[in-house]
Design a protein around this nucleic acid. Sequence first.
DNA 1: GCAGGTAGCGGAAGGGCTTCCGCTTAATCT
DNA 2: AGATTAAGCGGAAGCCCTTCCGCTACCTGC
Lengths: 208, 208
Amino acid sequence: MTPPSRRATRATRTDALTNRARILAVAGEAFAAPSEASGAPGASGVSGVSGVSMTAIAKLAGVGVGTLYRHFPTREALIVELYHQEIQKVIDLAHTLAADLPPLEALRRWFEEVARYGKLKYGVSEVIHAATNGGLDDKNYEPFLRAIAVLLDAGTASGDLKPGIEPEDVLLQLSVLWRIPPSDNGTARAARVLALILDGLRTRPANP
Amino acid sequence: MTPPSRRATRATRTDALTNRARILAVAGEAFAAPSEASGAPGASGVSGVSGVSMTAIAKLAGVGVGTLYRHFPTREALIVELYHQEIQKVIDLAHTLAADLPPLEALRRWFEEVARYGKLKYGVSEVIHAATNGGLDDKNYEPFLRAIAVLLDAGTASGDLKPGIEPEDVLLQLSVLWRIPPSDNGTARAARVLALILDGLRTRPANP
DNA sequence: GCAGGTAGCGGAAGGGCTTCCGCTTAATCT
DNA sequence: AGATTAAGCGGAAGCCCTTCCGCTACCTGC
């Protein structure tokens, strides 16, 4: 039954690669641009990601929808891919902070960074939500968890954080941050919630 | 300009009332039933709310889509209305617990109840999400907040909880609970997260 | 009862995401 | 170079939520 020849699969077609690249480029631009200032009343269009349809992206890239979906099986998949680099930065930061700062301070700073990142581009919520929820099929999920684990371990070792906290649980709690609406005084609210989360993770001094 | 006559508005048409009632009845049944065991491969169909389209509901109720939307301007609106009673029960429970139990215990029990409620019908997440997020146009939002406020106040008065916690922030944190996937060991996970949240709200004994 | 007027009705239509499948065409083999 | 073959392409089609608007039929005042 089909013995493996020297090459199991053909090389990826060059036009496919080109298309993929162009799609990413176009989508990046489209998502970055503030939502069109046209008269359309329907869309909320906070800014960024929202309001650009898959069809629109396909058209901009000069490919059919089918092609777009061949490369990115889902809207979320496309977004995740786009922001992969930025997410990686956040993940790297966790390792840096864990190495350079006292555990509690490192965690606090990292949380703040995560909050700021989420606020900056509200649409990114979709990314992290994707990078968070299912997790099963997302290449950002594992590294993100490991980053949290590193921070937690440092805190546990120093006795500042409770032992045995599951990184997944922390990620779940963090996911709340990108559901805070951006307008309002979202920053203040995020700060308050962060403080609550952090205190929940800390060890608790003995009662009198 | 338009002086108010004895009746500012006409009485609601009887057929409209009938339709509204039938829609609610039908939707209740449809949402309650486990998703059809047909061969459709697309839907995830965890159970309950998901997988029943507005069009389907309209058809089942024997009305046009327009009518459905006249009564419930949004899918969420319909769901919120359906589960209004059950949500009310949870809200009432908060007041009862606050009156009958030590503050911390009351809060803990209520959190657990909320978690259980969310787990029972996974689709309900949509409700509470609606009852939570926007809040602006949802009649469940305010009472829910007040329920939390009561529990918090009791805890603050007794010195068990930090003063000045915003009920909205707590609700936001709780909203995490109905994003926990049901299968798995969701119960255990919910318990862990709840404990973290609760500890975050408690006062912190002075450091040595 | 009957005429009037408006609340309510129905369903076509618009826009979105995703799937499907026949046709093209680049990579590979001879 | 020519033949072969499957990866890749394009866009129609299906399903969803929601909006819009002409027509109907139910309350109301006479």
